[in-house]
């Protein structure tokens, strides 16, 4: 599958691990686990050799994982439905308060027309549904050249830059 990452269309290097009752074995390679899997199999997950990511559903908020951020090289935040904007706050908190440097990925019903706001609050990777032309969607990042708010990206609004 292809995704948008750091303004480029790239092949996804990660796979989501569906929630399962047996958590004694995990596959090799970069996996993204659910919050429930993380909670039940923390010990085994952190001793794996390959990279670990976590996915939060739209109703799973940052306090659930805030003490474990060092364990994740990727945090995938779900927008289902797309109108559920809770994770706009999650991404900002990750970048600005917790100084999280890993990948923050938007998944679920991600609209092309949300990409710029998502980038501005700190997302750097985006999964769009397969019907969308990813290369065409890249133009969404350039729709605005300036902003009023100090957020992760760009950090200072223009009226403070003067």
């Amino acid at each position: 599958m292809q995704i948008i990452k750091d303004h480029k269309v790239v092949n996804d290097q990660w796979q989501y691990l569906a929630e399962k009752s047996d958590t004694s074995m995990f596959p090799d390679g970069n996996i993204i686990v659910t919050l429930k899997t993380w909670k039940t199999a923390k010990e085994r997950l952190i001793t794996r050799q390959s990279k670990l990511g976590i996915k939060l559903n739209s109703d799973e908020l940052l306090p659930e994982i805030v003490d474990d951020l060092d364990c994740f090289e990727l945090i995938s935040l779900d927008f289902t439905p797309y109108k559920d904007g809770r994770h706009f706050s999650t991404a900002r908190l990750l970048r600005e308060r917790y100084n999280y440097k890993g990948e923050i990925r938007a998944t679920g019903e991600v609209l092309r027309d949300q990409l710029l706001y998502m980038q501005r609050v700190g997302f750097n990777a985006f999964e769009l549904d397969s019907s969308q032309d990813l290369n065409a969607a890249l133009t969404a990042f350039d729709e605005f050249s300036t902003a009023y708010q100090p957020t992760a990206n760009p950090h200072s609004p223009f009226y403070q830059r003067k």
Binding site: Y82, G85, F88, S89, Y117, A147, Y148, Q149, P157
Partner: peptide, 13 residues
């Protein structure tokens, strides 16, 4: 007005 206009965090309240 400025702060609230196109605020990226609060467009999907």
């Amino acid at each position: 007005r400025r702060w609230s206009t196109l605020h990226p965090e609060f467009a999907y309240l």
